[in-house]
């Protein structure tokens, strides 16, 4: 009995209570959950799809988005700048939405990308009706960012930076994590709280 108790203590000490500090499913270092054939729209408005194994870039940044969400709108310009700045450095940004409301689905995504006034979105943006990718990545709020390294392990999980208001940002978590991974190092900050609009999962 004592032995059993001791081994339980050992397990408790070695395994964290949750997956990540904030993420209930994934932690830094985990193998990236695979995804394939998620219907998507390319920046030029053409039909596309999201398949992890098709991406050959050194770094992949999976971003959970939702058209309706003010926190997503607030980060969009920064995300577009980031995507442009890093696209020739071997970094691929993948946008995906798992929200079920009409305004967040693929036709709305296509309209948003195609809208001339808003035509700055420069990453492929998909919608997973089944919500599988969201559950697999433990995404519960938009925007949530997941940085994957060359081995497609999770290098960073969480928020883009430390403030929803650009002028107040002091820490650039995603950029710093990507820079570290590109330099062959582990990011100094591997997980932060992704907060914003909740993602309701269908029961």
């Amino acid at each position: 009995m004592r032995k059993v108790l001791l081994s339980m203590v050992a397990v408790a000490l070695s395994a964290p209570a949750f997956a990540g500090e904030f993420n209930k499913v994934l932690s830094p270092g985990d193998k990236a959950p695979d995804f394939s054939g998620i219907p998507a729209v390319a920046p030029n408005g053409e039909q596309a799809s999201l398949t992890l194994s098709d991406i050959k870039d050194d770094v992949v940044v999976v971003v959970f988005l939702a058209n309706h969400c003010p926190a997503v709108v607030a980060v969009e310009d920064r995300l577009n700048e980031f995507t442009s700045e890093y696209k020739d450095k071997g970094v691929r940004v993948v946008g995906v939405c798992v929200d079920s409301r009409e305004g967040d689905k693929l036709p709305a995504i296509k309209k948003r990308i195609g809208d001339k006034n808003d035509g700055k979105i420069n990453y492929v943006y998909g919608h997973d009706e089944s919500q599988t990718i969201g559950k697999a990545y433990g995404a519960v709020a938009t925007p949530t960012f997941v940085v994957l390294d060359k081995d497609r392990k999770v290098a960073y999980l969480g928020a883009f930076d430390d403030n929803g208001k650009e002028e107040k940002v002091t820490k650039h978590y995603v950029k710093d994590a990507v820079d570290a991974v590109l330099a062959g190092k582990a990011p100094a900050v591997a997980e932060t709280r992704a907060q914003g609009c909740g993602i309701p999962y269908n029961k």
């Binding site: 499913v25 969201g134 433990g138 519960v140 709020a141 907060q195 609009c197 909740g198 993602i199 999962y201």
Partner: peptide, 30 residues
């Protein structure tokens, strides 16, 4: 928490006794 809505129950001493959140995609509250 990461997302709202979220609901909390507090005792009369102000201590949290129960929480309901959206934070686990496999166990979101109703």
């Amino acid at each position: 928490i990461s997302a709202i809505p979220a609901v909390f129950l507090y005792g009369p001493d102000g201590k949290e006794v129960k929480r309901f959140t959206m934070d686990d995609p496999n166990n979101q509250f109703t």
